[in-house]
């Protein structure tokens, strides 16, 4: 009883941590530029795929991971420069389509550069499950949860303690005012893509030993990350992380206690259910209509 509860909690937190990172990446870009970046899942894919192939090419795992993060950041900057920046001022629907087009292109590129197979990274601390109170947990789960916590902490410190981070926050609060006080908002938007790409890639590296990766894992991750983002309240980093963890836990418990067939459906059911009761998400603020 306790064992299975613990088992499901751990697997929920593990997946949830990944959703949280994807949603955090969404939030950073959304706050800086009002763009919902559907290519966010592709960064996770790049993190996994590039480190798999770099490892196969003989690089040690930490170096392979570094290469993957840098690759994702390059792609993030390219996406911003070549697709988002030229379309500035377009309607939200157009911007969404552009990021989906970007996701297509990145996926297509990965398919050409790598292959269409599933790949796996070795666990960072081996594969032997640890037994805790009857629950058997793969050591990589601790890497995922701990790594995600560290990333969230680092991102928080970046926004609260550094001048650059504050510039991003200022741009998010009021783009026009930020421009007036001399912040280069174009640079800030670019930076947000860089940061989100790095976060996504790290998530991909952390989770690939558990879930496998292939060129097309990005779509479902982006959809669930978007669900987590909106569940949390669109624009709130705390909300994004909480939304991700909640979706992960709901999935794991539903799969464990109810049905595993509809595991992937749970995230969307929960998200729709919450929105019907709280139209602005869990942490979103209602805005009075001004006329």
């Amino acid at each position: 009883m306790l064992a299975s509860f613990l088992q499901f909690s751990m697997s929920g937190l593990t997946v949830g941590a990944i959703y949280a990172l994807v949603a955090l990446g969404f939030t950073i870009i959304y706050n800086a530029s009002d763009v919902v970046n559907f290519a966010q899942g592709e960064f996770v894919m790049i993190g996994g795929m590039v480190s798999v192939f770099a490892l196969a090419a003989g690089l040690p795992l930490p170096v392979a991971g570094l290469v993957a993060v840098i690759a994702a950041m390059l792609v993030g900057v390219a996406l911003h420069r070549l697709a988002i920046e030229p379309a500035r001022g377009a309607s939200p629907v157009v911007l969404i389509i552009i990021t989906i087009g970007g996701a297509f292109a990145i996926r297509g590129l990965a398919q050409v550069l790598f292959d269409k197979q599933f790949h796996k990274l070795p666990g960072f601390s081996g594969e032997a499950p640890v037994n805790i109170l009857g629950a058997s947990i793969v050591p990589q789960a601790f890497w995922v949860i701990g790594g995600a916590a560290l990333i969230v902490l680092a991102v928080t410190l970046f926004f609260e303690r550094t001048l650059l981070g504050k510039a991003v926050l200022a741009t998010a609060a009021n783009r026009f005012a930020a421009k007036l006080v001399g912040i280069n908002t174009g640079f800030v938007t670019g930076l947000s893509f860089l940061l989100s790409a790095a976060i996504g890639a790290l998530a991909g590296i952390l989770v690939t030993p558990i879930t496998l990766t292939s060129y097309d894992v990005g779509t479902l991750l982006a959809l669930k990350g978007f669900a987590a983002l909106v569940l949390g309240g669109l624009g709130s980093a705390t909300g994004a992380v909480a939304g991700g963890l909640i979706l992960g836990l709901c999935e794991a418990f539903a799969a464990g206690y109810l049905t595993s067939t509809y595991k992937d459906a749970i995230a969307f059911l929960v998200m729709i259910g919450v929105l019907l009761v709280m139209p602005n998400g869990l942490f979103g603020r209602a805005q009075a209509e001004r006329v």
Partner: peptide
């Protein structure tokens, strides 16, 4: 190259014919 091309074309069309 089909996916890659389609993605790039969608981006180009949306930028220039938004």
């Amino acid at each position: 190259y089909e996916h890659l091309m389609l993605g790039i074309l969608i981006i180009l069309i949306m930028i220039f014919l938004r």
